[in-house]
Design a protein around this nucleic acid. Structure first.
Lengths: 208, 208
DNA sequence: AAGGGTATCGCTCATTAGGGGGAGTTTGTT
DNA sequence: AACAAACTCCCCCTAATGAGCGATACCCTT
């Protein structure tokens, strides 16, 4: 059976062109809309396999669209299709549940590949987008802005696992008070007052 | 000028086949090694545009290889080329600075595309890898696997900010012991024994 | 009406953690 | 040689926390 696709795109000519292209290539475009206010219902009723979602639309934007579709019918794959490549919109879409992110400059051939890819459990992204996503993992470069000594980093790593001072001392074969000393210095360097804050800061800023 | 490539792969036949294939397709394979202990120097000396890096190698593994190359010559693009698709190795590689991640089942044609893509500032990933990466942004969906009640989630959110019980009670306009009650229940549901563990678990699993 | 889950609050007790101090050793730098 | 920084260990004291018992009240489902 053909793959069912729904389009959300407020530019009428682009949307109709896309629908035409997709139909010509054997896809079943079961709906195309210029705004996504009713996206949740549309997903429930038409049960599309794939949704192509623009971001900038009158009324509710595509980010809300993804959210609603993912809430009402998670098995539908949503591919963002937009001109925006700024970090903010990108990561909002990803958190909202987007399964792919293509820029509008993507050639139609790649668009068909992307639909295939997302159906096979992939996550099609334009190259510049994929790079941005990968870069979020590499922020460790900023790790040493607090000038933690090697030993302090080691202690912090144990702390982050939720271990108590006593356990850390045992693991590192140190005296209880030595670990406490390190912790005091860590707290000073991180500008925090307790282990909980230190863990929170270390994990959210990916210090270790 | 031709694109300079270095290979790190301990399987001799695979490595030689890859080198052959790449050379046949116009790439300049300036080096191929069965271990990556000297990767930093190799990167500095041969100044490759792209490195294909295996993970499982005798001596130091490819994760260290990426780290060293990225430290000694960041402008070299490193694509992991491995059979591993477990989360742990994947994200270690990404944090180490990998610019792409291809599984060894990738057909050669896609390999060439990937090299092109990474040179153009992209981040080639096998579909299943890309999906894993995107999923890290969406784990909010799995948030409720511990059945935390709304109030408990609220308390946990304050806890994650590093606040003490006293402060949390004040912020939520609750009695000290009420907050402690919620915390006890949270610890039970998360299977942890103290606040530090709870914070660690909540942040690393993005429960809130 | 009864039971389960949630939310609220209370108490005690032992353990843990944090703040304040000091002090010795090694290592590397000036 | 002098100095700083890191690493190690010790003491005292107070505050915070976790475990173990409660309790009451509300809402919802059965």
């Amino acid at each position: 059976m053909p793959i069912k696709i729904v389009l959300f795109e407020d530019n009428d000519r682009l949307r109709e062109s896309l629908a035409y292209l997709l139909k010509m290539n054997g896809y079943d475009v079961v709906g195309d809309y210029n705004q996504c206010t009713d996206a949740a219902n549309i997903a429930r009723v038409y049960e599309p396999d794939v949704v192509l979602m623009d971001i900038d639309m009158p009324g509710d934007n595509g980010i809300k669209g993804v959210q609603w579709i993912k809430e009402s019918r998670p098995q539908t794959s949503v591919i963002m299709y937009t001109v925006f490549e700024d970090d903010e919109k990108l990561f909002e879409c990803l958190c909202a549940g987007a399964n792919g992110y293509l820029l509008k400059k993507t050639p139609p051939a790649r668009l068909f590949d992307a639909i295939q890819e997302v159906l096979e459990g992939g996550a099609p992204m334009s190259p510049v987008i994929a790079r941005k996503v990968l870069n979020t993992f590499q922020v460790k470069a900023t790790s040493n802005k607090y000038n933690l000594s090697p030993r302090e980093i080691e202690v912090l790593q144990w702390l982050i696992k939720g271990y108590s001072i006593k356990i850390i001392a045992a693991e590192m074969k140190l005296a209880f008070d030595t670990v406490r000393s390190h912790l005091k210095n860590i707290y000073q360097k991180l500008h925090v007052n307790c282990g909980k804050e230190a863990i929170a800061k270390a994990l959210s800023e990916r210090i270790v």
